[in-house]
Design a protein around this nucleic acid. Structure first.
Lengths: 334, 334
DNA sequence: TTGAAAGCGCTAACAC
DNA sequence: GTGTTAGCGCTTTCAA
């Protein structure tokens, strides 16, 4: 046995192909990467590669050439379709460009994000895509010193590190308020979920209140449900608002999931929407547009954020901020 | 310059730490992996590691030691919450066990799956998690010869390669039919989406028809909508069934998304559910349980499938088939 | 057009 | 407890 040890006992290596083809390793390497090789040699090598089912080891290739095709993608959650949408956009672009995405889920915890960033950096990825602009100091330090492109997605309200792609949640909140005010609603309520975790929802609410304070309308009730956003939470939150009454004529929800719960409550109780109470969400989910009354909401360019972020993170353009904006969907509930 | 070339110009290496600490590389390596090192040496090394922000290169580590912490996860889509649910379960278990998940999306295309399997194998992952039992011959060959654990999730109706974790979609279809029959429905309809792509939905439909053929009930209408499942498609499909009439008294949908569309149509048209027409779905999405009338459906253990698949793929147990079953949710629509 | 030698950053094996 | 040597499987460099 010439070999003392084999990392992967079943692994066929370049050397095996080279030996079988009667050429050197580097020639096989060239064939595989389209280098200058005689046609006949190329055919012979490729035939053997195919017959043996050889798959080049990218670990070795990357270590040797310093060009990884891994890109880390870190999102807060997979439980809400919003983030899979972003991931979907990123994955499509990365895949088409020959990159593999390594996915991490923070559960909205900055400390977990920090751990994930470190774990991903260990694989020397070509780039890193993260969610939002809020990170621990150490996360920031790692991202800055890693020497790779970093894209921060889904938020524009704050300072970014390199590439920032998203929308202004504050502006979205303001636009939502202005829409309700223009429609004549004056006694508004807010039904949200845990805003300590969901910083972007918190920024929308801030923008919403900002716009109200400059208007004739007022926020007369706020219901913050503990935990994640869900239709059940939105339904329960609206129930509490309506049971207390107080003459609320429109409700702004932290997102479409919550707002759909509100729609369901009104359907169940036979409450006239928007005559008795108007409902407004955020995200523009397809499902909410298939409701008996399409939800009034703001559509966020989720897939597009993933696409643009991925494209930029793989490119060489200078640091930039891309505002993808949002679209107000009038719907029928406000 | 002793060094001719540096793969990563900004990269600090083990050698840099060793030099700064006045020890050999292997000692630093031991410190980092908890090997036997004197307390004082350990402290000195760790201090330098921290100060320099050194993150060990796992490419090199893995190449050297043959122990990758990457696991490939291949799913058909990210657009339907069902697959992010599975991914979420897998990610949670993998992350807790120190593994990173490399994600691939096939778009329901076996050829793309084949390409993804090859691309992932190039990273010599510790294991691979795929969706369903249908694969191209070459995919099968690669998975069999890779010498790693492979888990196939979400389907039990067919032959697996190594680890199989899921539920019998055929049995779920049968159970759905039996439930409707027991409730007294006799003129049934089916509203589905593209079953050529979604093999699991096709198997449910097969089971459904099987059970019907042994009963007094009959399938009197079928509406297959092109493309992916969606509330809009379900709504439109049910509209066609009802517009044709034919005395249909219950409708089985390919999944909850489609069924919710059906619910929305009935709400919009004021059709009494389940008196005029009963509706039945598949998946048990939370959202469908927050509807004014909770959807009658079958709950699939999606997160659990991901968890169990991930746990087994990282372990050493022999090849096995795990039937996680399903739960019929009576709901209020059938 | 092809090859030999050196090295990517790390760890296993075996000294000392 | 610590170091030396020899790779892991590939690509780069330089030469033929």
């Amino acid at each position: 046995m010439a070999r003392t040890r084999r990392a992967d006992p079943r692994g066929i290596t370049l050397a095996d192909i080279a030996r079988a083809a009667g050429v050197s390793k580097i020639t096989v390497s060239r064939v595989l990467r389209g280098g200058p090789v005689a046609g006949e040699t190329r055919d012979r090598v490729l035939e053997i590669v195919r017959r043996l089912g050889y798959v080049p080891n990218r670990l070795a290739g990357t270590l040797s050439s310093a060009g990884s095709n891994l890109v880390g993608v870190i999102i807060p959650s997979l439980a809400n379709i919003v983030f899979p949408d972003v991931l979907r956009g990123a994955e499509a672009v990365l895949d088409a460009a020959g990159f593999r995405s390594v996915v991490g889920v923070t559960d909205y915890d900055p400390a977990r994000e920090e751990g994930l960033i470190e774990a991903m950096l260990a694989w020397r990825p070509a780039g890193l895509i993260v969610t939002g602009l809020e990170h621990t100091d150490r996360s920031r330090a790692m991202l800055t010193h890693a020497g790779i492109r970093v894209a921060e997605l889904m938020d524009l309200d704050g300072a970014g590190l390199d590439i920032v792609v998203g929308l202004s949640n504050r502006a979205a909140g303001r636009a939502s308020a202005r829409h309700l005010i223009e429609r004549g609603y004056r006694r508004l309520a807010y039904v949200g979920h845990d805003l300590g975790q969901d910083r972007r929802a918190a920024k929308r609410f801030e923008g919403f209140r900002e716009a109200l304070s400059e208007s004739a309308a007022a926020l007369v009730a706020t219901e913050l449900m503990p935990g994640r956003s869900s239709a059940a939470a939105g339904r329960e939150g609206l129930a509490r608002i309506l049971d207390r009454d107080g003459g609320v004529d429109a409700v702004y929800f932290s997102n479409d999931d919550m707002a759909m719960g509100g729609c369901f409550l009104c359907l169940a109780r036979g409450i006239a929407v928007p005559d008795r109470v108007a409902l407004f969400g955020f995200n523009g989910l397809d499902l909410a547009q298939a409701l008996p009354q399409p939800l009034s909401t703001i559509r966020s360019p989720r897939v597009r954020m993933g696409e643009v972020g991925a494209r930029l993170v793989c490119g060489r353009e200078p640091a930039t901020v891309v505002d993808l904006g949002f679209e107000l969907v009038p719907g029928a509930t406000a």
